[in-house]
Each structure stands twice: as C-alpha cells, then as structure tokens.
Design a protein around this nucleic acid. Structure first.
Lengths: 213, 213
DNA sequence: TCTCTTGTTATAAGATCGTATAATTTTTCT
DNA sequence: AGAAAAATTATACGATCTTATAACAAGAGA
C-alpha cells in the first residue's frame, strides 16, 4: 500500500544507479534466488523481481542471463576467499597459527552455512556446461590451491618434515575441505563443524608424520 | 526417412513394455540428457525424445518429472556402489587388499569419467531442494560411510594401529574422495587418476601413523 | 477370436522463460 | 536552463516447459 496513486498511465519511478552498483545488486539478488530455489531460481524474471527491477535491466547490464550467473559466482568466490585470507592475515605470523586460522575460518559459521554451501553446489553443477564459469573456477581453484600450498610449505619448513609433492598435497587438503563442506551441506547431521576442524588437523598431523613424504 | 508413410492419420506404432523396464529406460534417458546438457537437460520433452517416446509416458510412469530425476539418481547410485563393492569382493580377503581394491575402483576409468561425475554433481545440486532425493542421498551416504568404516576398521585391527573415532575417520576419507572427484571433474588437468590413488594411500598412511588416534 | 486391461500416443491449455525493441525518465554536462 | 546520454520501464513475441485429458493400440487371458 505504499505505492501512491499517481494517476493513470504513470510509469514507475526509479533510481538510477552506477552500472557497477547495479550489477552487484543484480548479482546478489541472483544469489538470493539460488538460495531459495536452487537451480530453479536462476531466471531473469525471478532475479529481477528479487532485485526490485524490471527484466530488461538484466539484459541491459549483462546481455544474457548466464553472464549474470557467472558474475554472481565471481562475487561469491571473491567474498569467500577474501574472508578466509583476512582471517589468516590477522593471525600470528607463525606457520602453525596461520594454518590454524585458515582451518578455523573454513569451518566458521560464515562458511558452515547451508545456504552458502547450497549456492556453491549449484555453481559447481553449472561449471561443466559454462565455459565462462569454468574459466573463473579454474582461476580461483588455482589461487586457492596455491594459498594452501604456501601454508603447508611454510609449516613443513618450520617444523622440518618432508613433503614429496607440495602441489599434490595442497590439492589433497583442498579436496578434503571441499568434500567435508559438501558432506555437511547434504547431510548436516553427519558431523559438527568442530569435528570438521579436527579432521583437518588430523590430516595435517598425517603430513607431519611423513605420510606424504 | 525410416518412418514409412502409413497412410493418413495413423498413429505411431509402439512396443508395449513392462513398467519396470520402461521406467529404467526413461531413467537412463534422463541420465544421458543430464550428461549432454547438465541441469538444462532435465525436462520432460528432452528426456522423452531421448528415450524415443512421447511426453505423456513420463507423466504416466512417474507422475511428475522430479520423481523421474530422483529415480535416475537412485539408478546411478546403485550402479556406482555396486561396481565398487564388486571390485572389493573380488580382491583378496586381506584388509589391505580390500582397501586397495576399493581405492583402485574409485579411481578406475569407470569413475574418473567427466560425464559420470558431471551427472553426479548435478544431482548434488538438486538434493538440497528435493526432499525425495535428499532421502535417497542420506541413505546411500550412510551405506557408503559404513562401508568405508568397515574397510578402515579391519585394517586397523589387522595392523594394530589406533583410530579414536572410526566413524569420523570414515567420513573424512569419504570426503577426501568426493573432493578429489569434484576437483578432477571441474579441473581435469589438476592431477591424474594415479595421483588421486596416491593421495588416498597417503591418507591411509597418515591413519597408520596414528594421526587419527 | 473376442474382450478387457493398461501402456502409449496425441493434443491442448496455461505458465514461464529468454530476448528484443521502443518509450520514458533520470542524471549529467554544457 | 536546456540538451544529450544512458539507465530503466514497459511490452511483446516466440519458444519451451509442465501437466491434464482423451483417444488409441498392444498384449494377455478367457
């Protein structure tokens, strides 16, 4: 009832926004739609409604909807990686403290959120059929693995244990965390976040004991 | 041009099949559609066309399409678990041989197939918004983890190392394998299947060395 | 051979989707 | 203040989707 009667045939009033701002708004609306309805939430109409604009805006700013989805993927990826990296940088600068912070951040409430993970899984399912998203994913995956590689490598140097193939070890640790996220998302009663942390620490302990030498 | 002119107004000839047979055919057609187009392949029309039947058949046998998708999910789950269990049972009966067979089967060409994994990921993305699929998934996930738990437990008993929480360890190993599948599916150049096997063996080695005690 | 059951085709109705296009409003720049 | 530029609305079109319903045909049993 907040829309006043502005007489017959008046157009809806609107605010004009900077393109980057609007693009971000639309991207976040897309994320909310995916949270609500999964894959079925990916639609020009639904996203436009969620953002409180008309459909044409999406065409105008993104051309085709897949571009918007890919952009939403980028937003989310950046956000997650940033929040984790931030937590690492705020930790003490010893390799162990940094790694602990990394693990803790990865299982913090911000990450262990079924909404967030649900969106993540939907993106995964889209990557195989979207070259655009695949490119983004490969880029981030590489960044992510390299980050893990650095953390693990520093720890190994500090504590003096051997790792035969640091890159592979980082891939393995990354896979473990992705797998735990996925398992918890699909089956939240299987384990608690603290147990996820413990399992990651166990993995690191295996590394320490030379299982990857 | 194989469809002969059968005069005016003749209906298409068809073979009548037992319901279970037809259901399976439709389920497998659904899988092929998901292989080809991912989520976008999930549609009554496409699946019916792929199966070479009319759309009404899907309604007739499954009521609504989500039921068909869930059924396809069940087919695939069963198939995968069976093929792995079979490989384990065909191995020597020592704990180590059985575990090795399990890992080898998990990274065999049958599993390390982007088509297969691609379908798998799509299913994952649907589970969160489909109670029906979620129920199937929880069932199988439980079975799967219990299988892993048995394999690991036997090895621990045989070799005499300690595992504090067997169930958690099994969850961790399962997560590692799922994560590796996912990573390889989205980024097939990251590592080779043999390296995946090696990483699993490294994980087991960590277990042996008491990292999970 | 005839009849009955039901698997299957055929068709339609209504909803939703993606994209294109034109009209209009807001903002900026002079 | 006025004009130009660009964001936004409004609308339409064609394609595709899901589901419902009626007609038909294939196979089984009497």
């Amino acid at each position: 009832m907040t829309t006043a009667k502005t007489g017959p045939k008046t157009r809806a009033r609107f605010r004009r926004e900077a393109p980057e701002e609007r693009r971000r708004q639309l991207g976040e609306a897309a994320l909310r739609c995916i949270v609500k309805h999964g894959n079925a939430g990916v639609s020009v109409r639904q996203i436009a409604a969620e953002a409180g604009v008309t459909q044409g805006l999406i065409t105008h700013h993104f051309g085709e909807i897949n571009e918007l989805v890919a952009y939403a993927f980028d937003i989310m990826s950046e956000g997650i990686l940033q929040s984790i990296v931030k937590a690492v940088d705020e930790a003490e600068s010893t390799p162990k403290a940094r790694l602990d912070a990394f693990i803790a951040a990865s299982f913090s409430p911000i990450m262990m959120d079924r909404d967030v993970l649900g969106v993540w899984v939907v993106f995964w399912s889209l990557i195989l059929h979207s070259p655009r998203m695949s490119a983004s994913q490969q880029q981030e995956y590489g960044d992510y693995v390299r980050t893990v590689e650095g953390l693990i490598g520093d720890l190994a140097r500090e504590e003096g244990f051997a790792v035969a193939d640091l890159r592979l070890a980082a891939i393995s640790f990354t896979a473990l965390m992705d797998g735990l996220w996925l398992a918890w998302c699909l089956n939240p009663d299987a384990f608690r976040p603290e147990e996820g942390v413990r399992l990651c620490n166990n993995w690191i302990e295996g590394l320490r004991r030379g299982a990857y030498g």
